[in-house]
Design a binder for these strands. Structure first.
Lengths: 344, 344
DNA sequence: TAAAACTACTGAAACGTTAAAGTGAATGAA
DNA sequence: TTCATTCACTTTAACGTTTCAGTAGTTTTA
């Protein structure tokens, strides 16, 4: 089947290509007789014409494409979604983009920088970058003239829009909750504490809560690794090696918690009897585990929707003002925390 | 920052745009002096030039884009990845595409048909369609002249390449295993049994095993719903309503199994003591549940890799021959099955 | 030493669109 | 009646590339 172009439609309808374009795009400033409109529509349908969006984008400088960059947690590890959080977020982004006539250009990100170009290359209308941007030079990013939304990144730069949550506050709430439940030796278990990342903030919140309760910070209570199931398991073993000092843990991601539960089980530690867990994210998984996870809930679908909305707004208004969007959190009590002692 | 085009580079280097194109693409039939090559490369670097892939694709009819269509299990339900299988598969597809210089154009699919056009619209080089194609007319799909890979679909049409697994055989193995473990009343729990879908095949495999063991098929043992956690929970309640007849279940997706476990727990049914479960897929989750799932393992990363490879091969060779690729399965024994009675 | 072949380029056309400017006819206003 | 305006289009150029067909100049061949 030959590719059919706008010219073929024009010929079929006996009009110029421009007229076809006007009809198909309902260009507001142009008036086309309803008769011609009918003829063009008819011809297009008959030839089964679909416009070539690449060509359109070339000419109109509008691609209806949103670039999405999602981290690959470990270089060399091919599972981009070792943290299901990303999958759920992507799912929401995809849905809302599609509802607004946009397609997604998806790329994973590793520890090099060439995906800056995905944007310039393909002329995307906007870019959503999830997580700490791993590319080296922010400058190259800033040079892109499409709106950029940073999700869960603490890079403060007015060139970018940002969407996030009160990470520090959430961590404080989680930790305080454990304290209120009678725990004083509380582990902090997270992925890497990189700059601009959410985990550093959550660490701060953890410290805030301890300090407010007059509990000294214990370096031995800090566990930092990668955000995946395996690290959770490992952390459980490390916990034993360090002498099982804590009665509770604040864990910065549900997947890690899942692994932690597994690792604990393997060593005959009971959750929550031996160790209570408050987790973070409330991914779909959190309710599935056994015990189900008491966790800080964030509205992931909403986060994705907002990301798309910010792009759309920026594209439509042409405005460049930096917007910052912080979504609410709340603690969901499930079964991974046990009250301790009668004193609290 | 102004967009810099090939002409700017040409001017900077003092050559024609054509020469720049030749240098940058190392067009094999063209000879360019190393001196000029250097000059062009230098100019491109200096101006920070990135080629516009849309324009390239227009001209060369090659986009280095792979379209990926992934089902949205329920219309109106916005979580495309309610089955984590899709996330893991997508992750692998993305990784391998990127390693080969391809980008992904991602779209979810709902119960309408307009994503046929994603391909023709954007001029993708190939399309990967995951799951039963929900669009109405296969004819429109066939008319696309890019290679199409159907993953996990039993549409037999030589216009498409297919990747799948021995669904029927896998289901038989799973069911036989339960029989070998002393079970005779075995439920079949799955998503919808639509035509061309994997579940119908798995149902057949289930029947095969029963028949071989001389166990009559019981309609009351068949549960069919949607592929998600919620349906698993519901199935557990339905099981009670129907009178708890079965001592085991073959479940066609790990997510459903997770829900089933949850629902069972809510009703004080013990897994595997009261009901044994053999599941299907072996997604990452399967090891995380409690009890962990005995399941039919399929190599999801490999499936994604193959899908990309089939597209690449077809693009490079230009061949149109239909290829069919069946990946191996194996049973992974974990903790969700209990041997029953002393008789087996 | 003329013809052939090769080297290192360049110019023009094409890919499929849209945007801007132009055009001729009909209508309206002064 | 004449000029301006509106209507319903069309022509031309441009978007940023690649591809094809040249074209001088140099080298090889016979």
């Amino acid at each position: 089947m030959k590719r059919v172009s706008i010219k073929d439609v024009a010929r079929e309808a006996g009009v110029s290509a421009t007229t076809v374009s006007y009809v198909l795009n309902r260009t507001p400033s142009e008036t086309i007789s309803s008769e011609t409109t009918q003829r063009v529509l008819e011809a297009a349908r008959k030839l089964n014409y679909v416009p070539n969006l690449n060509a359109r984008s070339l000419s109109s400088r509008k691609s209806n494409l949103i670039g999405v960059l999602i981290p690959q947690t470990e270089p060399g590890k091919e599972l981009m979604f070792s943290n299901p959080f990303y999958g759920e977020l992507l799912s929401s982004i995809e849905y809302h983009a599609r509802q607004n006539g946009y397609h997604l250009l998806l790329s994973g990100t590793q520890e090099d920088q060439d995906y800056v170009n995905i944007a310039r290359n393909r002329g995307v209308d906007g870019i959503i970058i999830v997580g700490t941007y791993p590319g080296r030079n922010l400058e190259a990013l800033k040079a892109i003239d499409a709106p950029i939304v940073l999700v869960d990144s603490y890079v403060k730069d007015t060139s970018f829009h940002t969407i996030g949550i009160e990470d520090r506050e959430g961590a404080r709430i989680a930790t305080e909750y454990l304290i209120r439940m009678g725990h004083r030796d509380i582990a902090f278990i997270s992925g890497s504490l990189r700059e601009h990342g959410v985990n550093s903030k959550r660490y701060q919140g953890y410290c805030d809560a301890l300090q407010a309760a007059g509990i000294p910070l214990d370096e031995q209570a800090i566990y930092s690794g990668t955000v995946d199931y395996e690290y959770g398991i490992e952390a459980a073993y490390e916990y034993m090696r360090r002498g099982q000092k804590q009665t509770a843990a604040f864990v910065t991601a549900d997947v890690i918690s899942m692994g932690l539960i597994k690792g604990a089980l393997e060593q005959n530690l009971r959750i929550p009897e031996d160790v209570s867990i408050v987790s973070f994210d409330d991914v779909y998984l959190a309710q599935m585990s056994y015990p189900s996870l008491t966790t800080i809930h964030q509205n992931i679908p909403e986060k994705g929707a907002m990301a798309v909305q910010l792009i759309l707004d920026a594209v439509q208004s042409g405005r460049k003002e930096h917007t910052e969007c912080i979504l609410p959190l709340r603690l969901i009590e499930r079964d991974s925390v046990k009250r301790r002692g009668g004193d609290a």
